[in-house]
């Protein structure tokens, strides 16, 4: 218990130092940072989570039971990688004077990732059925 309290005190001290650093910023910047801190949670809890729950519900309805583990695994990989790729697919940081930034076809890259995931899920499902013929 004492060790846990010690660890907790260290944690609070680190976080307090971070908060102190933040408070050194201008008020306008601080408000903007606070908006971003809140917006991330709101986007996650009220957009990403409902989407995930809806997707899970669809999988439980539409995908046959035997295929479900692999379908779920494929969707975990695809879903998280899609969130990761939003800034590059959206090309929000593109600059006309600098062709070395965002210099790939990211939509094509995303489609390639989709195909690879589908193939891996498909191949491993076929392998599972061969192993355990009905």
């Amino acid at each position: 218990m004492i060790a846990r309290i010690g660890i907790a005190v260290v944690g609070v001290a680190f976080a307090a130092y971070g908060a102190w650093l933040l408070l050194a910023e201008d008020l306008a910047d601080l408000v903007d940072a606070a908006v971003w801190l809140g917006a991330g949670v709101v986007l996650h809890d009220f957009v990403l989570v409902p989407l995930t729950l809806a997707l899970g519900w669809l999988v439980s309805r539409l995908v046959p039971a035997g295929l479900r583990p692999r379908a779920a695994a494929g969707l975990v990989v695809l879903g998280t990688l899609t969130v990761l790729a939003i800034p590059v697919i959206g090309r929000f940081g593109e600059r006309p004077d600098n062709p070395t930034i965002l210099d790939r076809g990211y939509t094509a890259g995303w489609l390639l990732v989709v195909v690879v995931v589908l193939v891996v899920v498909g191949v491993s499902e076929v392998a599972r059925r061969r192993r355990r013929p009905r």
Binding site: I7, A8, G11, F14, Y17
Partner: peptide, 9 residues
């Protein structure tokens, strides 16, 4: 620092 502090806590 806030993340790491909150994580340790």
């Amino acid at each position: 620092w806030v993340v790491v502090g909150a994580l340790v806590l």
